[in-house]
Simulated assay, not measured.
Amino acid sequence: MTDPKFVAFSTQKGGAGKTTLTVLAASYLYYVRGLKVLVVDCDFPQYSIEDMRERDKELIECSPVFKKMFSDNMRLTKLAPYPVLSAQPENAMRKVREIIDDCEDEIDIVFFDLPGTVNNPGVVSILNCLDMVIVPVAADKVILESSLAFALKIQEWLTTGRTSVKQMYMLWNLVDAREKTDLYDQYEAVFEEYGLQTMKTKIPDTKKYRREGSKTLNRAVFRSTLVPPDKTLLKGTRLPELADELLGILNQ
């Protein structure tokens, strides 16, 4: 990659997994694939990713197991933790540009964690700069309707010139293996009728995606801003496949 690519997992419905997907994609691509990333937490006022980074830092101090994971990863990869920038949407792009200009190493991907409210001038200004918006969607009526409404709003803005997002994809998240595959095919046919593209990778509903470090439990970690997803937990998560598909789309 030559110029940084700007990407957001975004939707207006809480619980669809956008913050978790942002962290996991950033950590996997940075610590495992070696791409330089910047994560921008614009989800004011909760700043979930900033809070996660602070929890990770606390674990280094109080959990010998997590501290060893962190030290081993630093020794193996020679990588300091990727930067997490917290900024309100209206200030985010200015601060991102400053970081990119001041950074000695080129940044490959900037991930944005956006608030759910799109009718915000700051959010619109960020959307205007994005190379790709990924809308997590689940086979749950509330999440499905909310995510579809969000995607159609962005698509409406695209057709009217209010935003210039380069690409937008729906992403199946929280997929239950017991559900019939034709259910997703039927939903995707509806997406296609609306002119919406869907990523091929489907993310399963697995507790691994929520496994963070623990102050009391000596266990492998999957979701963290300071260490990569544990290799022993990767099987069946479809995270490597998601990373491959994401990079393939961005490099088209």
Rank of each mutant, 00 (worst) to 15 (best):
Y28H: 03
I134S: 03
G116T: 10
D56W: 00
L250D: 04
L217I: 12
V37K: 03
S164L: 07
A87G: 11
E188M: 14
G15N: 05
L239I: 10
C129M: 13
L242N: 02
D43G: 00
T232G: 15
R55I: 08
R33I: 06
I154W: 10
T19S: 15
E193P: 06
D113M: 08
N119W: 13
C42Q: 01
I154S: 08
D102Q: 05
K207S: 15
D51Q: 14
L226R: 00
A80W: 09
S224Q: 10
K78Y: 03
I249T: 05
K18W: 11
T216R: 01
V123P: 02
I60S: 04
T159Y: 09
P4W: 03
I49G: 03
E192G: 07
T159G: 03
R94E: 15
V165M: 11
K200F: 04
A8S: 15
R162V: 03
E212Q: 09
A177V: 14
R162L: 11
I107C: 10
S125P: 06
V7D: 01
D140W: 07
T216Y: 03
K215R: 14
Y31A: 00
D51S: 14
L234C: 03
D176I: 01
A243V: 05
D56G: 00
P228I: 08
S224L: 11
R238D: 08
N218D: 15
E98W: 09
S27E: 03
D51K: 14
V175D: 06
Y28G: 00
D41L: 07
E145M: 13
V37G: 05
G236D: 10
P45Y: 06
Y184I: 04
